[in-house]
Every structure is written in C-alpha cells, then in structure tokens.
Amino acid sequence: MTDSITTQEQPLFPRRKKDDRPLFIVFVILSFLATLTLLASASANRAAADWHTDLASSVTVQIKPNDKPGAAALARDILLQSSAVTAVTILPVERSKELLKPWLGGAALPKDLPLPILLDVRLHAGQAIDNQQISAAFLAANIRADIDDPQKWAKEIKRPTNAAQALSVTALVLIITACITAAVFATRAAITGQRRLIDVLHQVGAPPSYTARLFSANFALTGLKAGGLGAGTALLVSGLIGMMFASSSGVSFFLPGLHLTLTDIYLVIAVPILLAIIIAFASWRTIIKTLYEEIYP
C-alpha cells in the first residue's frame, strides 16, 4: 500500500471543478454586482455628505443694491448676534463683480451699475442660523437682504441621494435573493447527485449536522472564492470607470475612482464573506430540511 493513500485524506464531498463552474460564475456575477452597488452607494453618500458640510458651514447674505449706506455693517452686527455665527466678512465690490461675470460676460461693467453687497457668514460646525429671526431683524433695521438657505440646498442633494440609496437597497435585496435561490438550487442538485453519499453517511451514524456541514461548507467555499473574484473585479472596474470619467472635474459622482477609502476596502473584503455566509445558511437549511424529511425517520 502506498503511503499517499493512508496519509492523504480524500474529501468526502467530491469536488469536481467542471460541475461547480456554472455556480461559480453565478456567484462571481452576484458578488460583482453587490460590490459595485455598495461602492457606488458609499461613494454617493460620501459626495453628498461633503457637499452638505460645505454648504452647512457657510451662508451667503446678499444686501440689495442701492440700499442705505452702512447697511452692510449693520447687517454684520445683526448676524454676529446669532450664536451660530463665528465670523462675517463683507466682500469687496470686486468679488460681486466677479461673481456676476458668468452672467454678464467679461465686458466692463458700467461704474454706476447697482451691485449687491455680499456677506460671507461662517458658522459653527453643525449649527444653523435662524433664518426667520434674522430676516425679521433685517426688516426691523430696514435692510433689504436675501439669505441663502443652505437647508434648501441640502434637501435638494438629499433627495437624489435617498433615491440612489433606495435603489441600492432594492438591488441588494434582489442580489441576495438570487444568491439564496442559486444556493438552494445547487444544493438540491447535489442532494440528488450525492444521494448514495447521504445514505451511507446516515448508515454509518453521521448525524444530520455532519452531512449538512459537508454540503454547505462546500458551497460556502465556492461562494467565498467566487465572491472574492467578483468583489475584486468590481473594485478594479469601478476604479477604471472612476478614473476615466473623473479626469476632467476630479470628482465622479457615483464611483470612488482612485480615491479608495477604508470603507471601500472593508466592503470589498466583507462582500465575499457575507456571500459565503448567506450561501452556507441557505444550503444548510435546504439539506437539513431534506435530511429530516426523507432520510432520517
């Protein structure tokens, strides 16, 4: 007897690459889609959050042109009374002109063109000014001014972000369902194909959990390998797409591009593991159910 026989343990569950391939491909695709969805959703959330903090940390106040002289200073004093405000800068007229350029073109502006005076109001992080109160104070002081409402903008951003999130959740639910279905289907096929193995294991006194572990571990391993490949490919593809479309503006809305964050790395590691766990669970339940219904009296 050769030593290799007695030292090398044969796997009880037959691993035939050819039989596993269709399932492997399905899991690669599902993992790819799940990772892409999660990466895009995380990236969109991050972009929205960035904009949100930018917007929320400053407010612009526009004092209508031809208002009484000293209105700007008065407005500044009123604003500074709010506890949320850290600083108020009265922007020089040149800045107003600059801001108007896109609309009026580069043509020299007439000297007497009435220009609004802009106040840049800086806020404490996470705090907002009470628009109504400030407006009332302006009115009382006879200042005609517009206050940009950052909350309005935040809402504008939030709406598509929420929509994107709802879409990702829907996609993930579908992907998980497809994953469970594939695992159940493959397990059923394996139960039919390995009926003798199941019977013999039962006959030699293997408890149902032993047989179920054998089957589900096999599928979980396939899922882990396929999941790793799918997630890795998704990362690569999203990086490439992000790079291609972000080159002009430096930001791509839905994809992380080359700016990988720790979250992205975690996602790419977590997806195959979660996939394997879902597959193991689905496969385990399927075989345990069959064993108790058909094999163990």
Partner: peptide, 22 residues
C-alpha cells in the same frame, strides 16, 4: 439515532460503497 447507528455495522445487499472514495 446516529449515536446508536455508530454502535452497529451494516452490510447492505447492494454494498453502498461511495464511488468517488477509494
């Protein structure tokens, strides 16, 4: 039952050997 079966040895009429195991 599995624990009781481990105390028994069974030879079936059609052998029931597992094809992919030596």
């Amino acid at each position: 039952i599995p624990a009781l079966k481990r105390r028994m040895g069974i030879v079936l009429q059609d052998f029931d050997l597992i094809d992919h195991l030596n």
